[in-house]
């Protein structure tokens, strides 16, 4: 039970980190270059990544 709680906490912390680095922070409008790897990001990383690319596409197109 305790291990599950610890594992869950680690997963949430990694998700928090990925969310911040991919979706927060200062962004240079129009100068973001990001590639999607062949391999999937684990956990909810795929969702985060798609969200991030989508955000950047919107920024590039000025929407």
């Amino acid at each position: 039970m305790r291990e599950n709680v610890v594992d869950q906490s680690k997963d949430i912390t990694i998700l928090e980190l990925l969310d911040r680095v991919l979706n927060k922070g200062v962004i240079l409008t129009g100068d973001i270059v990001i590639s999607v790897a062949d391999i999937d990001l684990v956990y909810l990383g795929v969702k985060l990544m798609l969200s991030s690319v989508e955000t950047m596409e919107q920024l590039k197109s000025g929407k």
Partner: peptide, 16 residues
């Protein structure tokens, strides 16, 4: 290199 901008989990964590 441009390859370093690939959003693999390890690279994103390294960046952080």
């Amino acid at each position: 290199e441009k390859a370093d901008f690939t959003a693999e989990k390890e690279k994103v964590i390294e960046f952080a």
